[in-house]
């Protein structure tokens, strides 16, 4: 009888303990609630520009120089440069600063926009300049 009770207790408490341990907190998160990892990679792997109609305005592939930290993109003739949505693809766990929250004005071609890529461990920051050229 005692043995059965013991087994029952094990059956109930062991999964509960396992679940509780899975919920354990302690891994660091940044101010955005994103997990801070150990990754040091910090680069832009792809870049896209969408027009006001959410259709790509790129003419050809963007040239991303991860050493010079520049992105050169040519857009179609007739692109409305004041209302563009940039999209960055980053290395794993990286994030972008400042965040892109909506349309961006790229009409000042002489002064390229700058975004900073922050690595997964939040220790490395690389500022990328985006140069837009009209076809």
């Amino acid at each position: 009888m005692k043995k059965t009770a013991y087994r029952m207790a094990l059956l109930v408490f062991l999964p509960a303990a396992a679940m509780l341990s899975a919920c354990q907190k302690g891994l660091p998160v940044d101010e955005d609630g994103l997990l801070i990892t150990t990754r040091k990679e910090c680069f832009v792997s792809n870049f896209e520009l969408l027009g006001n109609d959410f259709v790509s305005v790129r003419n050809g592939v963007p040239i991303i120089d991860t050493v010079a930290q520049t992105i050169n993109v040519t857009v179609n003739f007739g692109t409305d440069l004041k209302n563009l949505y940039p999209q960055f693809t980053l290395a794993t766990d990286c994030k972008l600063d400042p965040k892109i929250t909506g349309k961006v004005d790229f009409s000042d071609l002489a002064n390229p926009k700058t975004w900073t890529v922050v690595s997964g461990d939040r220790q490395i920051r690389k500022a990328y300049k985006v140069f837009v050229k009209v076809q």
Binding site: N76, F77, G78, D80, K82, N83, K103, D105
Partner: peptide, 9 residues
């Protein structure tokens, strides 16, 4: 407010 005065394509 920032709309252009043309639409092509």
């Amino acid at each position: 407010s920032t709309a252009p005065n043309f639409a092509i394509g």
